[in-house]
């Protein structure tokens, strides 16, 4: 099925709830080709042009179409709007993948290493789920954690992202220079209006993790009034480093990776956990440093 409008797509999905909507298909078709997935039917979303752009709402929110491609998000106009999301989209894969892969697809696939997910979590974005005649708004984090999952027949249509007009950073540690899956990623956004720092760590757990206590603590360490003045550090480097450690300890449990090793009970953090913590700590410290530069 190849609907050309959003309404058509929603109707089609309601009519056959077993069908799987497909946008870029970069994850889905790989699973189909490998025989892991045998969808009863596919609903191609590629012709729904209204989902491929974005619009503004109330002056403070961008409503992004689920069909927005990763390549489009990397363009300068979008990057000026939501820089961290653009950074995440840029590193999400090779050009072939980014040209067809979509924001909605990234959310629906909900891969642990999905690059846009920590950014959406840090931005506290929400998604619109549509079915005939009705829509509902769900925070991305609720959707990802399964607190409020997608129901059969629902289509992910829009992603609402608050516009913060402040520095935001996405950093990703990978095993190679070329496009690669993240071993850990950190998204960090500043919200000067609320004097808040929001941070999410990706790829270390099935869903992005928010170190809420570390966020609150570091927001108190930042000299918000010094921002913008030449030569005045907005934060003590020691506090920045401590923030990194705080985030890492909060997001990487002691027993991380223990099941893969031996299955034995562990005392203290495993070597894998220590290594991952160091990576996350460096990423978080650098992300904060870049955001406050």
């Amino acid at each position: 099925m190849l609907p050309t409008s959003l309404d058509e797509a929603v109707e089609a999905l309601a009519a056959s709830p077993a069908a799987v909507p497909v946008a870029g298909g970069t994850d889905l078709m790989e699973a189909v080709n490998a025989g892991r997935l045998r969808p009863a039917a596919l609903i191609g979303l590629g012709r729904i042009t209204e989902l491929r752009g974005w619009r503004y709402e109330d002056g403070g929110t961008a409503v992004l179409g689920a069909g927005l491609t990763l390549a489009r998000m990397d363009r300068p106009d979008f990057a000026a709007l939501i820089p961290a999301l653009a950074d995440a989209a840029r590193t999400a894969g090779p050009p072939q993948t980014r040209n067809v892969g979509t924001l909605g697809g990234n959310i629906a696939t909900a891969a642990p290493a999905g690059d846009t997910l920590p950014v959406l979590a840090a931005l506290e974005a929400s998604v619109t789920l549509a079915r005939p005649g009705a829509t509902r708004e769900v925070p991305v984090s609720h959707l990802l954690t399964g607190l409020d999952p997608m129901r059969p027949g629902e289509l992910l249509t829009w992603v609402r992202v608050p516009l913060l007009n402040a520095p935001q950073v996405f950093l990703k540690a990978t095993g190679r220079s070329g496009p690669s899956r993240a071993t850990a990623s950190v998204a960090l956004v500043l919200d000067p209006a609320r004097r808040a720092v929001r941070c999410a760590v990706g790829a270390v757990a099935p869903v992005p993790l928010r170190p809420l206590e570390a966020e609150a603590w570091v927001a108190g360490c930042i000299d918000w009034d010094a921002r913008g003045e030449e030569g005045v550090p907005a934060i003590d480097p020691a506090a920045s480093a401590a923030f990194g450690e705080y985030v890492a300890t909060a997001c990487v449990p002691d027993g991380y990776g223990a099941d893969a090793a031996s299955g034995l009970a562990v005392e203290g953090p495993t070597a894998v956990a220590l290594r991952l913590r160091r990576t996350v700590a460096v990423l978080a410290r650098r992300a904060l440093g870049r955001a406050l530069k």
Binding site: R90, L171, K172, R176, R286, G289
Partner: peptide, 15 residues
């Protein structure tokens, strides 16, 4: 600069 970690990566020239 093409830093370790690739373009758009987490590289920091100081490190």
């Amino acid at each position: 600069w093409l830093l370790p970690g690739g373009p758009g990566g987490a590289g920091d020239p100081a490190a």
